[in-house]
Amino acid sequence: MSLLPAADPQQPKARILIVEDEAMIAFAAEETLLAGGFEIAGVAGRLETALSMIEGGGFDAAILDTNLAGVSAGPAAEALGASGRPFIVVSGYLPSQQQEVFRGVPSIQKPYAPQRLISVLSEILPLHLKPPYISA
């Protein structure tokens, strides 16, 4: 992996949907993603908001917290799966404590280093949407 200067300012940025109930973490994720060359498609702190945003589209990938204010984000994972858009799971649970619906999806444990979020997210994106400074 090497850091390269942004070669083409015209290249479209990947639009990311953040599903995270903890405002402070969502805020930090936003900052990380913006700095990493992504665009923020939206932030959902509750399951219903998340489901309607997923249905509304307008994003290329999502990061999904598994627990939204005490409610399982399982339905959001299913909706994302159905939408065909890639997503990663961000959670404080151990993989063994994770519900079945979240298994087999790329995941990061909280707390995470900002760079890790960028690299895991980049891996699931199609080539043309990868941030400019991430080499293929």
Partner: peptide, 25 residues
């Protein structure tokens, strides 16, 4: 108990993530 353990883990890690964000900010 298993459920509580998972909750504790979830909450503790969330809190650490919050602290991390607060520290960065």
């Amino acid at each position: 108990v298993n459920m509580l353990m998972a909750e504790v883990n979830h909450r503790a890690k969330n809190l650490l993530a919050v602290v991390q964000a607060v520290a960065n900010q």
